[in-house]
Design a protein around this nucleic acid. Structure first.
Length: 446
RNA sequence: GUGGCUGUAGCUCAGUUGGAUAGAGCAUCAGAUUGUGGCUCUGAGGGUCGGGGGUUCGAAUCCCCUCAGCCACCCCA
């Protein structure tokens, strides 16, 4: 006997299998995102998982370059796996924008890969649901981006979340006044830690990485002392950036965004001006967004984005501004899981048709087909096993209803529609393509 | 990439100072129960104790390496 090589089945660190229980809510989320994006006029596109390496490098940050999965393909080409959907979009737009026209609004739901250390809600392969508007600098696009984030989270079922908004030009304006523009990245990175680190520690980091003086650090950190309502913070921001065109424009822009979002009917507590939000990605130039769940802020931002007005410049195309955001589907799912928002459903169909009378398979198949053509999801149990076992199966999988018919029912032209939650069942006529059965099912599942 | 904690059946966990064929509950399958699920009872299957090496007469237990998960840093969805 030849010995069989035994290979241990396993998955790579940070990569996961998705069982039905996980995949059903996951697909539901994607469906919700699609619906919301489409309702704003975003069109679907897709791009390859692999790109030429030079398309991807130097666009996000040093960190994303380090996390990039890269290798040589069989033709010796240097390639990389996309680490987000925004950089590929910039390449896509630089190639096709003349056919697309502007403004161009697209959404893309696809996996991305980052070779970083894992944690709850942080994986090496994860799904992003991006939407972006290219070709306009209009503030309406910034406002709409916030509105989409808001509608999306509401449609998913969240009521307690906060969209944090800031503007890179406010930060850059302040840095311009202080003569720190050259060290912007280092200063902003330190500033970003204000939520977690004491201000004097942040100042120390700034001094170390950006060479700021004590006075400069104090002025940057003055941002952290701003408090109050959005309007009050805006007011306090004015003197901090006065004299800097950039900064003044940024403050004005933020005011317009907050006003616009309010006119669309978004509750004031859902959106919050937070001047410490800088975001680590280098390509952002204007408005930036992060979205936190009030009940689980530790998991991090579940939907982030911002304005990037110069991303296509590196591909030789000038003047193609863009703004958009990305829903972190797998992170959000991890959050919903720990918040107990995921129902343990293991079937996507509502109804199980029991295979009861072994002589009548054709009748069951006909009934199931009739229900499906009326739009009802139906699973037909494949073996004529004991009814009790079939009901147990239905119960465990989370079917809402069972349709039961034996010779007694068939002879009367009827079947039972059993509600598995209440245990009650009613007799329905099979006449007219089982319309009475469909109606009884609808009454429960609607 | 750095540091800390953890790893025993599909899941949650017991397992004495290192001691004999490694246990329980839940889940799965079968039966009690050939026209009605969730309860009950009976029985069965399922483990190279994450993997590899070392110490020892003897390792689930101690040591080293490795893999994976969780947490923090970093960064981010």
């Amino acid at each position: 006997m030849a010995s069989i090589a035994h290979i241990i089945p396993r998955t790579l660190k940070g990569f996961r299998d998705y069982l039905p229980e996980a995949m059903i809510p996951r697909e539901r989320l994607m469906e919700t995102a699609r619906q919301v994006y489409r309702s704003y006029g975003f069109s679907p596109i897709d791009t390859p998982a692999l790109e030429y390496l030079d398309i991807l490098t130097g666009k996000g940050s040093e960190e994303t370059d380090r996390q990039l999965y890269r290798f040589q393909d069989h033709g010796g080409r240097e390639v990389g796996m996309r680490f987000d959907l925004t950089v590929p979009l910039a390449r896509f737009a630089a190639q096709h924008i003349n056919q697309l026209g502007t403004p161009f609004k697209r959404y893309q739901i696809a996996a991305v890969w980052r070779g970083e250390n894992t944690q709850r809600g942080r994986y090496r392969e994860f799904m992003q649901c991006d939407f972006d508007t290219l070709g306009t600098r209009a503030v309406a696009a910034d406002i709409e981006t916030a509105l989409v984030i808001h509608d999306l989270l509401q449609a998913i079922g969240f009521s307690r979340f906060t969209i944090r908004v800031n503007h890179r030009m406010v930060l850059n304006g302040l840095l311009e006044r202080l003569g720190l523009v050259k060290h912007a990245t280092a200063v902003l990175r330190a500033l970003d830690k204000l939520g977690k680190m004491a201000p004097d520690k942040v100042a120390a980091e700034m001094a170390a990485t950006a060479g700021t003086s004590a006075a400069q650090a104090r002025q940057v950190l003055a941002l952290s002392e701003l408090s109050g309502s959005n309007a009050e913070i805006l007011q306090q921001l004015v003197p901090l950036v006065s004299g800097s065109d950039l900064g003044e424009q940024g403050v004005e822009r933020l005011a317009e965004i907050l006003a616009g979002v309010a006119s669309a009917g978004v509750a004031a507590e859902r959106i919050c001006l937070d001047v410490s939000i800088a975001r680590g990605l280098d390509y952002y130039t204007g408005t930036v967004f992060e979205t936190f769940l009030d009940d689980l802020p530790a998991i991090g931002s579940v939907c982030s984005g911002g304005r990037y007005d110069e991303l296509t410049a590196t591909y030789g195309k000038r003047d193609l501004p863009g703004i958009g955001a990305s829903l972190g589907l797998d992170r959000l799912l991890a959050a919903m899981e720990t918040l107990g928002m995921i129902a343990p459903v293991r079937t996507p169909a509502a109804v199980l048709v029991a295979f009861f009378d072994a002589q009548r398979m054709g009748d069951y198949l006909q009934l199931a087909a009739q229900l499906r053509s009326a739009g009802v999801g139906v699973e037909f149990y494949p073996e004529p096993r004991k009814l009790g076992q079939q009901l147990k199966y239905a119960d465990q999988r989370g079917f809402r209803l069972a349709v039961i018919a034996g010779s007694r029912e068939f002879e009367a032209g009827q079947c039972q529609v059993k509600d598995l939650q209440t245990g009650e069942s009613q007799l329905c006529s099979l006449a007219h393509r089982a319309e009475a059965v469909v109606a009884a099912i609808r009454a429960v599942t609607a």
